[in-house]
Design a protein around this nucleic acid. Structure first.
Lengths: 148, 148
DNA sequence: TAATATAGTTAGCCTGGGCTAACTTTTCAA
DNA sequence: TTGAAAAGTTAGCCCAGGCTAACTATATTA
């Protein structure tokens, strides 16, 4: 109950459980293992840890649901992911797939302070739409030879 | 010799060896342990791994230097760090210390493709100096109540 | 130069987070 | 309704990367 910090790996598990529940109404162990590309045994192990930390309701062979705390944590991670991905795609003009993968890693590295600033920046750039984004794209393309 | 990927932890070791060598001409085990806040024993372990990967020249009780490959890798990591930190400080207007810490984590999460785009963006914003940065600062401050 | 303080290593331990193989439970279709 | 397939668990393994305690090597200085 007092476990504040959680590992990147466990954050990933929480996030896919959250997404699966959102998409299908329920999170199955098999699907978790496929999304994260880990074995089913690893999923079982992670679920035990998450249960110990009070983030998941889980009994062997039972349903997998997030606790209130777990859902809160998962939602935060998912939100970070979206903000970061949106920065990569909308401002840096990085392709969807690369952005998606990079956001998956960065979401564990950036704290709330940084991410909320980033969110603010993305908002600002979007609602400004003063041509900065397009201008940057041109600038960037003209310089692309320099990029290894 | 064929070891492409390296862990975040080992990247950290390389980076501080690189920085210490730059600052003092030599990297001592004690200093590495202090900078990374790990035990001296952990440093010894890491040095053995790095040697095995051909990234440091190291013999027990001997000098610690980077191989050519090690220096290249370390320089890349350090460069990533600088670009990311610069984005945080100069564009997002995050305070130095927070930015420094966040960059330390993000440098392991972002690939070259993303970082080079980011570099490009920072460059663009700096040389533009079309008032976007200051304008964003104002925007951000006026909205700060909304940020938890 | 000998004694001690500092630096570095080794041995042995722990945890997280993977894996496979084998087993158990559940589901579903004949 | 029962038996095979699919899903899930367990046991036992491995590795990275931490740690402490105890040892060894090096440096310092009285």
């Amino acid at each position: 109950m007092k476990n504040k910090k959680i590992s990147a790996s466990l954050e990933d598990y929480l996030e896919v459980i959250f997404n699966l529940a959102d998409e299908f109404g329920v999170a199955r162990s098999k699907d978790i293992s496929e999304r994260l590309d880990v074995s089913r045994a690893s999923v079982t192990g992670a679920l035990r840890l998450l249960k110990k930390k009070g983030l998941v309701n889980y009994e062997p062979y039972g349903y997998i649901t997030l606790t209130e705390n777990g859902a809160k944590t998962a939602a935060e991670v998912a939100k970070k992911h979206n903000i970061i991905e949106s920065f990569f795609v909308n401002i840096l003009d990085i392709d969807e797939e690369t952005a998606q993968e990079a956001a998956c890693k960065a979401e564990h590295a950036l704290g709330n302070d940084v991410v909320s600033r980033l969110m603010c920046f993305v908002e600002y750039m979007n609602q400004q739409d003063c041509g900065v984004a397009e201008d940057f794209r041109r600038y960037c393309n003209s310089n692309r030879k320099k990029v290894k």
